[in-house]
Simulated scan of single mutants.
Amino acid sequence: MNSLFGNPSASRNISSGSIPGNASVSSVKVNVNVSSGSDSFYLYVKHPSGYSASRLVGSTSLSFTEFNGLDPYGTWQVYIVTTRTVSTATARMTVDYTY
């Protein structure tokens, strides 16, 4: 993902795949690989319902509790927004759920 001058990067869609009907989110984790020379940035995770949460990336492992208890089914989105000039990163998201 690439963000320039405070503009959001393109969103990356992540499908939940097949989920049991009574499932609920128990944790969301994102592992981030920041490219050398990148300015600081916010990483946003957007739930299929439209609810979103963000973290200022200061670590390569981020946890989000804001989605706990929500239905994990659907297409999630992840994107970044630089705080300065340019930021580049890759991310891998894991959504754990109980049922």
Score class of each variant (00 low, 15 high):
Met1Asp: 11
Met1Lys: 08
Met1Thr: 01
Asn2Met: 12
Ser3Arg: 03
Gly6Pro: 12
Pro8Arg: 13
Pro8Phe: 02
Ser9Glu: 01
Ser9Thr: 03
Ala10Lys: 09
Ser11Asn: 07
Asn13Glu: 06
Asn13Trp: 02
Asn13Ile: 04
Asn13Leu: 03
Ser15Phe: 07
Ser15Cys: 01
Ser16Leu: 08
Ser18Asp: 10
Ser18Ile: 12
Ile19Met: 08
Pro20Val: 05
Gly21Leu: 11
Ser24Ile: 04
Ser24Thr: 13
Val25Arg: 08
Val25Ala: 09
Val25Ile: 15
Ser26Glu: 11
Ser27Val: 05
Val30Asp: 11
Asn31Gln: 10
Val32Leu: 06
Asn33Trp: 02
Asn33Tyr: 00
Val34Cys: 13
Ser36Phe: 08
Gly37Arg: 06
Gly37Lys: 10
Gly37Glu: 07
Gly37Gln: 06
Asp39Gln: 08
Ser40Arg: 14
Ser40Glu: 12
Ser40Met: 12
Phe41Pro: 08
Phe41Cys: 11
Tyr42Gln: 15
Tyr42Asn: 15
Leu43Arg: 12
Tyr44Phe: 15
Val45Glu: 12
Val45Asn: 06
Lys46Ala: 09
His47Leu: 08
Gly50Arg: 02
Gly50Asp: 00
Tyr51Glu: 12
Ser52Pro: 01
Ser52Thr: 04
Ala53His: 01
Arg55His: 10
Arg55Asp: 04
Val57Ser: 04
Val57Met: 02
Gly58Tyr: 04
Gly58Lys: 15
Ser59Pro: 00
Thr60Ile: 04
Thr60Pro: 12
Thr60Tyr: 13
Thr60Ala: 13
Ser61Trp: 00
Leu62Cys: 02
Ser63Trp: 02
Ser63Met: 03
Ser63Gly: 07
Phe64Arg: 01
Phe64His: 04
Phe67Gln: 01
Phe67Lys: 06
Phe67Leu: 05
Asn68Met: 04
Gly69Asn: 10
Leu70Phe: 15
Asp71Val: 03
Gly74Tyr: 08
Gly74Leu: 08
Gly74Asn: 08
Gln77Asn: 11
Gln77Arg: 14
Gln77Val: 00
Gln77Tyr: 14
Val78Glu: 09
Val78Arg: 05
Val78Trp: 01
Tyr79Glu: 05
Ile80Met: 03
Val81Lys: 13
Thr82Ala: 02
Thr82Gln: 01
Thr82Gly: 09
Thr83Pro: 08
Arg84Phe: 12
Thr85Asp: 11
Ser87Gln: 07
Thr88Ser: 14
Thr88Tyr: 09
Thr90Tyr: 09
Thr90Phe: 09
Arg92Thr: 12
Val95Leu: 11
Val95Cys: 10
Asp96Pro: 06
Tyr99Ser: 14
